[in-house]
Design a protein around this nucleic acid. Structure first.
Lengths: 331, 331
DNA sequence: TTGTAAGCGTTATCAT
DNA sequence: ATGATAACGCTTACAA
């Protein structure tokens, strides 16, 4: 186990040069004669010298890492988002701090603590309060991910409006009545947008939208539970517009488990287009969102440094509806 | 945005004390008179002084954070594992670096890079090669999570043997023949253990185990795909033992989607007991694993410092079979 | 091209 | 109880 590592000073002594030269060689900056470089490199190789991250951070006044704050990590959406973010950050030679708040009470406090260990932070949706977000922005560069810009804090998000199209499709093209929206608008800006698009589509079709959404979490199991309650009611919905694919999949599984026919008895739609959505029977009608790109774009914004005139303040990425069979369309 | 922060020296000047006293007050160590403490605290409050993480790390010679390396983050298993790990680490006042290798080619290299920014590392299963693992252990304290101890590197894992019980149950109690194991033993030590327990149970029942497992990934979508191939064959299996619940759920959904009856035509079992498993129809027979505790135990081991005489070298956590209906047992 | 020396922001050891 | 001051390990002017 780690026989106390070598310092630059010791390498310098061994190679008979100054620490400055060791630094120049190890970072590849400045002018060093080939012979000297070779000599230093030999010592570095031989003794396995690796510069201390701490010393370097202090001298350079930068941590060399960024953070991404998410409500949780479960499900394909977050996994994909993180991959996009991570790979972009790594290409830039930095490292990533991932923090899932999981609705813990002291989340805000921890997020502020993280700000002390990274150079910049990406915050997903409404994971932390607006005040904490502002406080955070005072301590480090911040980008909101899947949310709206706030007081000069830029945002990267996807276009949620296709939920309106989808709702219109169910209402007008298929002629369904009694639609229910499943998802909690309070939970995230994305769901808020989708719920509003759902309601607006009703108004555009001159129909009264439901007064309330059916509020649940965003995981598959939440969808199954929702199906249980919704479909056991006296007047079950004819179609369910879900806030995301995971819940839609859960609702589908729950409906099928109760012996219902989808889309015959119940039509279902989702959002995201995760892999499972095209593998279930019937396949899920949904909206495709470039999740990976969302993470990558956020990372680029964070890394390239924010602010400055002409900087991106709000990046809205395009999405597209994917019509399959769960809405009632023919195969 | 961050009006260049105050340093301890500046606080010292403002409070008319020395930096040493500022340090004593801010860390709450040493003896400081009430008046002096109050004076310093006032300045700290007023100007919003927060000690620099970099300076502190260098002086204390510790990063104050640990890392956890995983193959990926998708699915409820990893989410739960991370929560257990994270919450234990945070209670200790440290922060967490999460790194998902996602099978990227340069994963090993990145893992070694991470070792330079943390005080200790937990590595899941076979995410990195044995050589890299040893090299890593030379740079920082390491614990293997869901794998076997290696050359003095301790491990924390769950007991996979109940898969043997489950297999015996299918073979003997239900009298099924033609069982298939779904999962890739090369992928992780856990799956290796489970595949071996599956084979041993066959031998114990004096039956020939299948020569090969059906190798796939550990996600739900992989399970659906597996069901498609397996059930379309000339002689489909009578029962499928899956490496985990996610794939079992996928197989179940795939089988149901093809119009098969479960467990009538096909029995299915899993491992983990994730929330979905008790919500599907039929409910999944599986093995309950204390995933959260697995993460927490790993974190505690990492934090309390490894090595030393009498240290834990291999912690195997108890698991239990959960009999439900997907194996053919009555409701 | 190379070396000297001054930071970077803490903590901790001595004196006083 | 408090203050100088020396680490901690590196980068980077500035000199030579």
């Amino acid at each position: 186990m780690g026989n106390r590592r070598l310092t630059a000073r010791e390498v310098a002594k061994l190679a008979d040069v100054s620490v400055a030269t060791v630094s120049r060689v190890s970072r590849g900056t400045g002018q060093v004669s080939p012979e000297t470089r070779a000599r230093v490199l030999r010592v570095i190789e031989e003794h396995g010298y690796r510069p201390s991250q701490m010393g370097r951070a202090l001298a350079e006044q930068r941590h060399g890492s960024v953070a991404i704050v998410l409500p949780g990590l479960a499900g394909p959406y977050f996994s994909e988002l993180i991959q996009g973010f991570e790979s972009e950050v790594m290409d830039a030679g930095a490292s990533v701090h991932i923090f899932g708040t999981h609705h813990r009470a002291d989340a805000d406090e921890h997020v502020l603590g993280i700000a002390a260990r990274v150079d910049a932070v990406a915050v997903h949706g409404d994971t932390i309060g607006a005040d904490t977000l502002r406080e955070l922005a005072a301590r480090a560069p911040v980008v909101v991910l899947a949310g709206r810009p706030l007081d000069g804090i830029p945002a990267v998000r996807a276009d949620n409006s296709p939920i309106g199209e989808l709702t219109r499709h169910l209402l007008v093209d298929h002629g369904y009545r009694r639609l229910t929206f499943v998802g909690d608008p309070e939970g995230s800006p994305d769901v808020t947008d989708r719920w509003e698009a759902f309601r607006d589509a009703h108004r555009d079709a001159r129909l009264a939208p439901p007064r309330n959404p059916f509020r649940i979490g965003l995981q598959q199991s939440d969808g199954v539970l929702a199906a249980g309650e919704l479909l056991g009611a006296r007047r079950p919905p004819r179609a369910i517009v879900c806030a995301n694919d995971e819940t839609a999949l859960g609702v589908l599984i729950g409906a099928l488990g109760r012996g219902l026919s989808v889309p015959g008895d119940l039509a279902i739609t989702g959002f995201d287009d995760v892999p499972m959505s095209s593998l279930v029977q019937p396949r899920l009608t949904t909206v495709r969102q470039p999740v990976r790109e969302l993470g990558a774009t956020t990372a680029r914004l964070l890394i390239s440094g924010l602010g400055g005139p002409g900087a991106v303040m709000d990046a809205v990425l395009a999405t597209e509806t994917v019509m399959r069979e769960s809405c009632g369309c023919p195969l």
